[in-house]
Amino acid sequence: VLLLKIRATRSCRGISLKTQELYALVFICRYLDLFYSYISLYNTVMKVTYLATAFSIVRYMRFDKVVRQTYDKEQDTFRYIFLIAPCALLALVLNHRFSPTEVLWTFSIYLEAVAILPQLVLMQRTQNIDNLTANYVALLGAYRGFYILNWIYRFATEKHYRQWIVWISGVAQTALYADFFYYYALCWKANQRLQLPA
């Protein structure tokens, strides 16, 4: 959806480069297992797709002659360190196994949960949030939100399915969207363009 917006409108107005770069980092840290484990063709294709789209978005926003001029750097002020440092620290302390790949994987789970924050802050400052941006954020929130239903189903049907770190992070991630979803639903019902209160 986001690539569609960027390519169709030649603009990344209202999109946080910080959030996009954090997602790229999340995917790098999480999908290192592409090199040493295989689950299914679907799984591999989706991992490569996420990596490719994340890097493509960052490339457009940073280097495309036209698109990069529409990036509002002054408004996108969230500091990386405030998200990366706590997640890194937490991953070093709270993990299933103290190995490089496991800690990086855990770090990616924690970082994904909060990576949307720069985007949410930027949207609060944006007067006219375009529909594609609003829909993109809603889909991103719904994506992890729907996992919760899947986790409940798998917990009930699979014997050794316990992933506390993933579950708690996923619920926290979805909770961060609660406020956004509330206003998204209100505006959708009223058939109005999304506006977030300052």
């Binding site: 996420y50 299933h96 996992y147 050794h160 992933q163």
Partner: peptide, 10 residues
């Protein structure tokens, strides 16, 4: 035994 199980989610 890896107690996290197989990481089959994205």
């Amino acid at each position: 035994e890896d107690e996290t199980g197989s990481k089959d989610e994205l």
